[in-house]
Design a protein around this nucleic acid. Structure first.
Length: 461
RNA sequence: GUGGUUGUAGCUCAGCUGGUUAGAGCGCUUGAUUGUGGUUCAAGAGGUCGCCGGUUCGAACCCGGUCUUCCACCCCA
């Protein structure tokens, strides 16, 4: 070993117990997706560059991992382009494929390609890794999993209501209580921009507004001014900074503020419908809260905007997000197909569950029973018993070599095995096996000819 | 992409203004215990001080570069 091996920045290895915990989250999310009627699809880990480029804004393009062409890719670049040393000109000539940046755009591509085979409305879910050439931080990786559920071909706001309930159902099943589902609407943001006379500065206006909880009222005002909003416009937005109270109170305030904007009023109506419908059936553990400062994914969201914040006290970026996009497939030539979807950030949810100690205790119990090895004759008989246990669905194994019993016990202890079986010379002679309960230290003897009582006691757990 | 931060034993971390042989706890190995772990006691193994270069009589420590970690921007799950 000349030098220590390493893995690329922002990537991770997963140890057995980590994989178990990740699968625990996957299983709950997948089960919930399916009980809500979503069907699974998968798409390639890399796409043609033109499928991805330009779909996430300039910032997004920068963060897309490009794949170098195979072979002598430089020979295909003409001298002029090469000499110009212009990054954006050369890139498309030497890279024609790129790693998936999210699951939504590949899904839109999928819908367009398979539109004749799909029965609309189409509810699909997808759990796959995505890659971003971002600078890593806590809970921010260059390779991470997204778990997406989207509905295409249904305009009804009932979908938004269902997606809020889906978030609630998943986080309830994960025992993660007190997550906040923040809700906003692109139309409301457009309406506000209209009312204050800053339609052209919608993005600048919302990006600044989005920072309210981070940099405060004065910081936002300053940034808005820097981004070109007039003092008059800023003073008109003032009421938004102090929007508080219940969801209904906020809705009423927005109603007043936006009564002169057609699009804004429509946004308020939509928001009201979702809020009231969700309230009607209630949420099990999540909190639904209007947040007009929420302004993510503006490049394609057209209606509802959703974001999930971890329970207060946990320092973590959003653990989920989503929204309504009226024309996502339009960029691939299929018009008038509305979509709405949500995404779960598995890797961040993992960190939150870990921090709060919410994983089930027995999750890294990879073995229920370990049989110690006392030698060839004993271990061959033990293997028969172990196979009986395995056929009964019990995770059972036999120590492969007859090293010192002390060492074998220590191994069982380190692996968190709750039951150890001993079949030594004496037991073999008597046709018995001894079961040691590792948590209590107690031992009991069973007949090799009748392991059923022991098997049943394990299955009860 | 910009600015900052971190890296010492398998793990968590000490290590003074640069000074000789770099330490602790946990873990590991061996023994007390030839059929009993998790407790205890004793002994032992384990380190190119992230990597490359520079300054110096002398570098874990100072300087430059690079990789990595985390943080703030940007953006985002």
């Amino acid at each position: 070993m000349a030098q220590k091996p390493s893995i690329p920045k922002g990537t991770r290895d997963f140890a057995p117990s980590e994989v178990q915990k990740r699968n625990y989250i996957f299983d709950i999310v997948r089960k919930r997706f399916e009980t809500f009627g979503f069907q699974p699809i998968e798409t390639p880990s890399f796409e043609n560059s033109e499928t991805l480029m330009g779909k996430y804004g300039d910032e997004g393009d920068r963060l897309i991992f490009k794949i170098l062409n195979s072979g002598d890719f430089l020979s295909k670049v003409d001298e002029g382009t090469y000499e110009a040393k212009n990054f954006s000109l050369i890139t498309p000539r030497i890279s024609e494929k790129a790693l998936r940046y999210d699951l939504t755009v590949p899904f839109a591509r999928y819908v367009v390609m398979h539109q004749n085979e799909i029965d609309f409305p189409f509810k699909r879910y997808q759990i796959q890794p995505v890659w971003r050439a971002d600078r890593p931080q806590k809970g921010r990786f260059r390779e991470f999993y997204q778990c997406d559920a989207d509905v295409v071909g249904a305009n009804s706001l009932l979908q938004e209501v269902e997606l809020v309930q889906l978030y609630d159902a998943v986080f309830t099943d994960l025992k993660l209580e007190g997550v906040t589902i923040k809700l906003n609407n692109r139309k409301i943001l457009s309406g506000i921009a209209e009312v204050i006379g800053a339609q052209d500065l919608l993005i600048d206006f919302t990006v600044a507004l989005d920072k309210l909880d981070k940099i405060g009222v004065d910081g936002v005002k300053k940034e808005m001014k820097e981004r070109g909003l007039t003092d008059e416009a800023i003073s008109k937005v003032e009421p938004l900074f102090h929007l508080s109270g219940s969801n209904i109170e906020q809705l009423n305030a927005l109603d007043t503020l936006l009564k002169e904007s057609e699009i804004g009023s429509k946004g308020v109506d939509e928001l009201r419908f979702i809020i009231e419908s969700v309230a009607d059936s209630g949420l099990k553990s999540a909190i639904l809260s209007i947040d007009v400062t929420l302004a993510r994914g503006l490049n394609y969201y057209t209606g509802a905007i959703l974001e999930v914040a971890a329970p207060s006290g946990v320092k973590m970026g959003s653990i989920g997000g989503g929204g309504r996009y009226d024309d996502l497939t339009g960029i691939f030539g299929l018009k008038d197909v509305s979509g709405v979807g949500i995404s779960f950030g598995l890797d961040r949810i993992y960190l939150v569950l870990e921090e709060l100690g919410l994983f089930p205790e027995a999750i890294d119990q990879s073995l229920q029973v370990l049989c110690l090895n006392f030698g060839e004759k004993e271990s061959l008989r033990a293997l028969k018993l172990i196979n009986q246990l395995r056929d009964a669905g019990i995770k059972a194994d036999i120590y492969p070599s007859d090293t010192k019993i002390q060492k074998q016990f220590k191994y069982a202890n380190n692996r968190n095995v709750p039951y150890v079986i001993l079949i030594g010379e004496q037991e073999l002679e008597n046709g018995e096996f001894v079961v040691k309960n590792m948590t209590q230290g107690s031992q009991e003897t069973h007949l090799l000819s009748n392991p059923d009582n022991f098997i049943q006691s394990l299955q009860l757990n």
